[in-house]
Design a protein around this nucleic acid. Structure first.
Lengths: 149, 149
DNA sequence: TACTTTAACTTAACACGTTAACAATTTGGG
DNA sequence: CCCAAATTGTTAACGTGTTAAGTTAAAGTA
């Protein structure tokens, strides 16, 4: 208990996670930029490709986006005719979001490049280490969330 | 090569890293908020505590902040008298940044709580796993940055 | 010395992260 | 049925991420 000082950034967990995420994202961003898509907009498109016709609250959870951010993103994608919103008949408060035809086309255009980038990263880093990393990250989240105080 | 589809978010590397970072940050943010500090502002203060009198470019590298963000952050911290800027005599273009007395006092107030939070996380997750995670993240960055294309 | 190039920021513009306040429904009693 | 409370978003405001353009000072070059 003698040395209660803060580690420098090199050994800061948030910083290490940040650097790793940045390094990984650098691989995906260029092909998204070619289509004027942000990483967040792409997440929404991906989620809708997985399951078309999600309401905004569900999208928010699946994409890890806060409602205000998502609200803006949907407005943007809607203005570009990549998605479509319809009111739910049973509950007029909820908007259900659908990928349009051009939204699906855009997905089909971008997805293969992302797959390539992912395979490239997996190859460079090693499949076993990738799996180990996933497990560690998952366990970290579990343990840290477990008892918040 | 048969199944060239994108994993769902649960198994997306950027998402896993994002979730982990969010879970970890949740532990540190409350004590920062008590002092109206963002995580980024705190990084700047920490860097200056490590080495007082850094120019903005060096701060940018150490804190992993882009120059425009840092420019705004410095303006903010300066307006709150937590830091102080002086022109470099040899080169009038560079501003050298110093922690003021109240900046240092704020550091002394916040740092112990961050140390506590870090120890708590380490204990919950396990020291060995923490070290392993650091190594994996570092290696991931190396390998991924290695050959960008 | 005059002129171009480089370096060190700063500003602008747009998107997202985050908290708080608002608006429109829907639901749950009484 | 009516009103309070909860639900589903949207808007506002401020700080950060990111790219591009603008400023000022230093360095390099003819």
């Amino acid at each position: 208990m003698a040395d209660k000082y803060l580690r420098k950034f090199k050994r800061s967990l948030p910083m290490s996670l940040l650097r790793a995420r940045e390094a990984v994202m650098k691989n995906f961003i260029p092909s998204l930029q070619e289509h004027k898509l942000s990483a967040q907009q792409w997440r929404v498109i991906r989620a809708l490709q997985d399951e078309n016709g999600l309401d905004i609250s569900k999208l928010s959870v699946r994409c890890h986006l806060m409602m205000p951010s998502l609200s803006r993103i949907i407005k943007n994608l809607e203005s570009r005719s990549l998605i479509d919103r319809r009111a739910n008949d049973r509950d007029q408060r909820v908007s259900v979001i659908f990928l349009t035809k051009s939204g699906k086309q855009l997905y089909d255009l971008v997805a293969p490049k992302s797959v390539e980038r992912y395979e490239d990263i997996t190859e460079k880093f090693g499949y076993g280490k990738m799996e180990l990393l996933y497990e560690l990250l998952e366990e970290l989240v579990e343990k840290v969330d477990e008892a918040d105080e």
